[in-house]
């Protein structure tokens, strides 16, 4: 089974943790995660600059490790990311910002990637926040 996951919850939202548990279960069960699309506040999960207190779980770091280890197709909506200050090197240069923060393994791209993934997957699961 080919799964596409859509995340729109913030890193602090329990839905982002549920999504990671679900994604791990998809792979463990032998299915494919063809794409994970990060939209709205979920773009912060792709930031390298989140810092959480030492006795708390760093969900963004866990997502980033999961994406890297499984070489997943992790697409971050570029418009949603720019508004929220999640930039790769090229966008930081384009908008003359002094830093970039997009984690390795993630790619900034447009909403066309969301539609493409929704069209081609057997199952689309959306993890949404409380917003």
């Amino acid at each position: 089974m080919q799964f596409t996951l859509i995340l729109s919850s913030s890193p602090q939202d329990p839905a982002s943790r549920r999504a990671l548990c679900f994604a791990r279960a998809v792979i463990a069960a032998g299915h494919q995660l063809q794409r994970i699309f990060f939209y709205q506040d979920a773009v912060h999960l792709a930031s390298r600059l989140l810092v959480v207190p030492q006795d708390e779980q760093d969900l963004a770091a866990q997502w980033q490790e999961f994406v890297r280890e499984n070489r997943l197709d992790a697409v971050v909506c570029i418009a949603a990311a720019l508004r929220r200050g999640v930039l790769d090197e090229a966008e930081a240069r384009r908008y003359e910002k002094d830093a970039d923060n997009l984690a390795a393994g993630f790619e900034l791209s447009g909403l066309g990637q969301l539609h493409e993934a929704m069209q081609s997957a057997n199952r689309v699961v959306h993890f949404k926040g409380d917003a």
Partner: peptide, 28 residues
């Protein structure tokens, strides 16, 4: 795809970001 817009227009970005998904779908 049925997109459901359930957020008040000025309560955040959700209204705009839902419409963006619709417009992108239309473009394809």
């Amino acid at each position: 795809l049925l997109l459901i817009a359930s957020h008040a227009p000025w309560s955040g970005l959700a209204a705009r970001e839902t419409l963006d998904i619709a417009l992108a779908g239309g473009a394809f």
